[in-house]
Design a binder for these strands. Sequence first.
DNA 1: CTGCATCCCTTTAGATACTG
DNA 2: CAGTATCTAAAGGGATGCAG
Lengths: 109, 109
Amino acid sequence: MKSFIAKQYACPVEYTLTLIGGKWKPVILWHLANDGIKRYGEIKKLLIGITHKMLSQQLKELEADGLIHREEYHQIPPKVEYSLTDKGKTLIPILQLMCQWGQENMEHI
Amino acid sequence: MKSFIAKQYACPVEYTLTLIGGKWKPVILWHLANDGIKRYGEIKKLLIGITHKMLSQQLKELEADGLIHREEYHQIPPKVEYSLTDKGKTLIPILQLMCQWGQENMEHI
DNA sequence: CTGCATCCCTTTAGATACTG
DNA sequence: CAGTATCTAAAGGGATGCAG
């Protein structure tokens, strides 16, 4: 999942999934898509069960892939806000489709 | 990724990704969507680099999740054919969207 | 040809502690 | 409040051999 390493993809779907796949990334993107700008701490409260380390890591990767924007305010205490970039916003239809499909199918578990 | 274990999902997207996420599943589904019925060996030839173990595992999980159908012919040598179920076919739009998004964005790497 | 089991190594993620 | 580093436990995936 190290986005900066050159890699060969057999299929574009595989590439897309390296950017938005995984346990946390889609949920992070989903919240930013719905709520716009969010602070680090706010995101952490929304993602029940995520560890501090994981959230930092995921946000860092999403930023490196140009999907989210990181705005840092140099204050004490620090304050950092995250939001979707234009590229990130183009993923919303995909997230919506997956969300819809999940809702329609997961109830039969 | 053990699909038969009860699990809580914070978001339907997460559930969807446990079914179609990962390195191989979307590609397998993609090929079955395009070509219809395929034999085990044919799929293996299409997925460059996949190991024997991985393919068996992924196919088994996809079958357990009701996304693909497994038709076994009791012959010597054995012959097994795989195809999408109706449920599996409902995923095609999602795969198409992800494929399209990947094509439009991965060229800028 | 297709599938399962085992061994083993690599990768990933959780817990904890520390910095600005 | 936000982020980093380290250590460790657990999961993932490759290679190989055996079975129907």
